[in-house]
Structure formats: structure tokens, C-alpha cells
Design a protein around this nucleic acid. Structure first.
Lengths: 354, 354
DNA sequence: TGTTAGCACTCCAACGCATCGAGTGCTAAC
DNA sequence: GTTAGCACTCGATGCGTTGGAGTGCTAACA
């Protein structure tokens, strides 16, 4: 990326800032007044011509002003956003008792974030991948069904009904429970693979028919994780932006938000590499690598509940979204999220003392 | 409702049928050709005037044709729809292993139905209300947490992490488990109220502090049922209908579909009274009693998984939705749904024999 | 050499206007 | 009771005009 001389940067910044607010192409005269450069509109025009040649801005047609190109937005996000000195605005409604069911919490968070930003939001359930197994419990339901409950380090719970073909007696079940717990507890989900399960099957011995059914089911629950669910909220916010509505991308976007496959791809991307822990990711237009989303921008962040329980959250809006605010909200959310658990512990501590 | 003379009914029917297809106001000449009444457009005009006076149709403006009023649709739904002789079209993709997690299944069903009908769909999780408790299990997680798992008659599972302030030993936990199971198993959710829980607290005796926390949590899980979740799909189908899009009701509708509160109200209505078991319910326009939905129609049905496990499913579309098809799809769905479990049993039976 | 004023040019958006056609309501004749 | 005919209404469509915002270029200025 070529370096821009100072004045061009200021002008580009002004154009984008203005366009973010209004959504209308911005002209040279506006900039001439808006900035304190004290340059006439004519001079600005010359600079704008340059900026257009360099690909940072686009003129929709001859006699309109200019709007930022994807490259322009990218430059803005990378260089022009001034980090607000993170005064942690209170997301007061975000008081979550961590005992509540995870899916409710996620839905709530998505909703709050949407209300806060006025864009569409999405959030994945936390991935158990790196989490350690705390315990497994199989219980009798009736002759044909066994219930398996699996709890991991962050106190996340998965359960699943297992169909069996012949009843299992209490003794067998107890043995199985002990077997599972002694051999799996403490391992991270990642470490439990088909090999582990196969080894377990060996040990289990005679009743391998039923037991293998059960073990398969357990394995499935553990790895079920792969098809992680995505919760969305505020999809209708998309309809507030005329440029999306008219071009018909609003429809496409809503479609994308509904089927969730593409969202998953984008959200997961940030989860894979843990190098840049605290970074937010910004996708502008085609950078999302999704056709349906080529008219919008997406900002994602990962959140961490501790104990390796991590998920990912994102915001979808028009390209002219208020990046500063969105990024700030996400940072903020992440902090709050992390604090939730600690606060819960704290609460208990205090009560004990009194 | 006044009785309509035969010819008027035919004309009304023709108007509505035509409007359902085209979405455009229909004029007298069209009807004159469309029907085999062999009446001239002038005669039809006279009849149409009458129908308008009676409130069955509306003319959007002087020189347009007529469109059905809510009352017109109502008459159509009540009297004019010919039940297709229920040839059960194969909803082949609807092969559900009933071991899959309930929320996934519901989401899938909503999706299929949306794809099938081209309208927006919604479905509630089954209500446990009339269901009997099968068993409850409390297990140790760590010093501060106890996991409660509750299974009901239809093999539906609820679980919840309970925060406790001081550890509970194994013996206490065992006692508590026995207590809960002996006193609650076999009761229907409806029968378990605060009184029951209070009585239990009495019996529990000394450790009432922790135990009451736990019992409260259990009570909460059981009654959690009240805020039943609604899954939706195909919301974007709404955008396919220009009359909604232009009037701006599409936006409102999408909003309604998102926040789900209103949907719940409508869906639940059918669940409360179990008198008219098999009936579908049709809400036209304001009959939904929701402002945001006054430009659309809703058709709902209840489904029954046996053992008193019931939920409710609905379709949201423009007033000119294809009522026949929608109602047929819902009927069909209900049958398939009921059959799912039976089929699952069957599968097991067969395997045992071989 | 960079900046600016001035001017011609472009193009969209808005407006007014005429036209068209679908559809109505009414009347008179069958 | 039915129908043909006719005047009338009113939205949709298309078209030319106008206005304004904004550009690009050129020539003059510092």
C-alpha cells in the first residue's frame, strides 16, 4: 500500500467520516468547509482526483460526490481510527447469572449488542475444543434409553439421550460410569479422539455391543461441538440503511443471516489462530469472501470465558458502519464477558466472609 | 354472518382465487371470463358492488379492481376451501432420529416447512406442562456446583447448574436424590407447584439452607417451561411479496418474527384449549391482535409427540397466502410428527426380532 | 509550483404535464 | 334480470424541463 501524503490522509478521513454519517456521496465543497485545512474546493477537487486514481474513493457518477471504496475503508480502519481511551461504558443490563442456560445468555448478549450498535449481530456458542472434561454421567431412563450428561471445565453441560436395544443393569451402568470417568476426566476434548474411544471399547470387554453404542454416542456428543450454533439478533437493523435496501443486498444479507452457514465460516476464522488473541477482525465487502455479503462489513471478536472456553461474536452492518463504535462495543463486551465469571466467584467469596 | 346467495359466493371465490395468484386487484371483466357463469362484466359489476357493500371486498381506489377484505378472506377460509383428500405427500427430508437434540429438530422442521411453503414459519418447543416427571438427578460437579437433570415422560431433558455456597457430601446428595424422586416422579409438571416444593422443604429437615436453594432451582427448571422458546425460519420469504414490501409492513413483520414475543402469544393460544384438538387456526389481519402483523395472515397448528408433550407450529404469510396449501402442509406435518416416534419404536421392535 | 476563481459541462432528482388504460357506476334498452 | 354503452375517475407511465450539486479544466495569481 502506497503511503499517502499527510493532506490526502486528512481529506480521505474527512470524506469517510462524513459519508459514515450521511450515507450520501460527499463533494469537494463540503470537505473544504468541514476540515480546517483552509483549502478551496478546487484544491480539494484536485486531491480527490488523486485519491480516486489511487483507488481510495469512487465517484458513483460524474456529478455526484465521492464515496469510499473498500480500499478506502480498509485504510480508515487500519490507520485512521483513533482508539477511544477505553473508558468502560457500563453495559449494565448485561448482568448475567452464569447459572442461566448458555443459549439464553448468548441470545441475550446478541440482542443487547444489536440494540447498542444498531447493526445485526451474531454470536457462536463457545467451543469446547480446548476444554477439559470434568465428568461424565450415564443414567438409566428406561429399558430403552440411557441419558448421558457431560460436563466440562467451564461448567458447560451437554446431554443426550441414547437409544439402546437391550436393557443394561445397574451394575453394568456403574462400571461403565467409572470406566468413562477414570479414563476421560481431565482430558481436553481435543485429546479425546476415535483412538481413545476404541481403546475404551477394548477395556469394556464382553458387553461390547451396547457399550459400543453408548460410547459412540458419547463420542458424538463430545465432537458435536463441530457444528456450533450461531445466534443472531437485530437482523432487521439492516433494513435501516437505504443503500442496502435499494440495491437489494438487504434481502441477500437477511438470507445470509438466516442460514448461518456463512456466518459460521466468518466467525470461526478468528477462533482458529490463537496468535492474535485480543485483535478484532474487520472484513470489508468482498473480504468476507461471501457473495451475499459483498455490500456490507463485518467486525468479529473472540471471547474467552476462561478454562479454554472460547467463542466468537460479530457485527454485520453496511460498509459505512461506525467502525469506531462497533469496535469499541466489542472490546467492551469482551471485557465484561470475561469479568462475568470472576464476579460470580467474588460474590460467593463475599457471602462466605459475612 | 349473512348468508350469501350462490352466485355471489362463486364470484367472491373467483375474486379471491385470482387475487391469491396475482396479488393485483381484479376487475369485473376478468371474472366474467374466468368463471363459467356466462355473465357479462356489467352484471358482475353489480354483484361486486353488493359484495363491497357487504364488506367482503374492497376497492383500493375508484378505478382499480377489487381485493378481498379480511372478512372476505375469513369467508374463504371458512367456507370455500375444499379439503384436498389428504394424500400424504412425502416430507421425505423429515426423517428425524428422535435422539437428536430437540432444538435442532425444531429448527430443521421450521426450515423444511418454510422451504415447502415459501412463507415464514415458527415453531415452539414442546410444552412440558401436562407431562409427567420421569426422574430427577442431582450430581456433584464441584464444591460450588450441583448439576440437576430432569427427564420427563417424552424423554425430554432439562438441565441446570445450581450454585451452592457450601459443599454437600455424597450422603446428603443421595438422600436428596431419593427424596426428590420418590415424591415427584410420576407427577405431572402441572401438579408440581410451590406447595409441593414447600412440603418437600419441610421433609428435608436440617440442611434446609442449601437444600432450599436446590429445590428452588429445581422448581425453576420445571416451571422454566413458561418462557418457551420459539424457533423461526424463512423470514426472508416475507420480502418476496411486493404488497408487504412497499407498505413497509415487511419491516414490521420481520421485527415481529425476530423478537418472538408476539409469536409466542399467537402460538400459545392454540395450546391452551385442548377441546378442538385437530383444528388448525387461521388468523387474518387484525385477528392476530398484533399491530405489527395486521397486514398478514397466520395459520397455526398444534403438534403432539404423545405423552402429553405438545407444541405449536405456525406459518406467517401475506393475507393472500395459499391457504389451501399451507393448511395442507400443516396437517401433513402434524401427522408425520406424530408418526416419528412410533416409527422409532417400530425400528427397535424389528431389530429385536431379527 | 501550488492554489484558487471561474466557467462549461454532466447528470441525477424532482416536477409538471399529457396520455393511456383499466375499471367503475349509471342509464337505457333488451 | 341482464346487458351494451358511455362518461368518468384515477393511478401508472412516459417525457421534457428545470435546478442544483458537483466535477474537470483552464487561466490567473502568489
Amino acid at each position: 500500500m502506497e503511503e499517502l501524503e499527510g493532506r490526502k490522509v486528512i481529506i480521505l478521513n474527512a470524506i469517510i467520516k462524513n459519508y459514515l454519517e450521511t450515507g450520501e456521496p460527499v463533494g469537494s465543497r463540503t470537505i473544504s468547509k468541514y476540515t480546517d485545512l483552509n483549502l478551496s474546493s478546487a484544491t480539494i477537487r484536485n486531491e480527490m482526483q488523486d485519491l480516486e486514481e489511487l483507488g481510495y474513493i469512487i465517484s458513483p457518477h460524474t456529478s455526484a460526490g465521492r464515496i469510499p471504496s473498500d480500499k478506502g475503508y480498509r485504510f480508515y480502519v487500519d490507520h485512521l481510527i483513533r482508539e477511544k481511551d477505553s473508558e468502560i461504558r457500563e453495559m449494565k443490563a448485561l448482568v448475567i447469572e452464569n447459572t442461566e442456560k448458555m443459549d439464553k445468555v448468548l441470545q441475550k448478549v446478541a440482542k443487547l449488542l444489536a440494540a447498542d450498535t444498531n447493526y445485526a449481530t451474531m454470536i457462536t456458542a463457545p467451543k469446547l475444543h480446548g476444554t477439559k472434561l470434568k465428568f461424565i454421567q450415564l443414567s438409566h431412563v428406561d429399558d430403552r434409553h440411557i441419558l448421558s450428561v457431560i460436563v466440562t471445565e467451564g461448567n458447560l453441560v451437554r446431554n443426550r439421550m441414547i437409544d439402546i436395544e437391550e436393557p443394561l443393569n445397574d451394575e453394568q451402568l456403574l462400571k461403565l460410569n467409572i470406566l468413562l470417568n477414570t479414563s476421560l476426566t481431565g482430558l481436553s476434548i481435543r485429546e479425546i479422539n476415535l483412538g481413545t474411544i476404541a481403546a475404551l471399547k477394548e477395556q469394556a470387554g464382553i458387553h461390547s455391543d451396547i457399550i459400543s453404542t453408548i460410547l459412540d454416542a458419547v463420542a458424538e456428543v463430545i465432537s458435536e461441538d463441530e457444528d456450533l450454533t450461531v445466534y443472531t439478533s437485530g437482523a432487521t437493523n439492516i433494513l435501516k440503511y437505504p443503500e442496502l435496501l435499494n440495491s437489494g443486498s438487504a434481502t441477500e444479507l437477511l438470507g445470509a443471516l438466516e442460514d448461518k452457514q456463512e456466518l459460521k465460516t466468518i466467525l470461526t476464522e478468528g477462533l482458529e489462530e490463537d496468535e492474535d488473541e485480543g485483535k478484532l477482525r474487520v472484513y470489508i465487502g468482498d473480504e468476507t469472501r461471501s457473495d451475499r455479503m459483498h455490500d456490507c462489513s463485518v467486525v468479529t471478536a473472540t471471547y474467552d470465558l476462561g478454562d479454554g472456553v472460547k467463542g466468537s461474536v460479530g457485527i454485520v452492518g453496511p460498509k459505512r458502519m461506525d467502525y469506531e463504535k462497533v469496535m469499541h462495543s466489542l472490546r467492551n463486551l469482551r471485557e465484561q464477558f470475561g469479568a462475568t465469571l470472576e464476579k460470580a466467584e467474588l460474590k460467593i467469596e463475599q457471602k462466605e466472609e459475612s
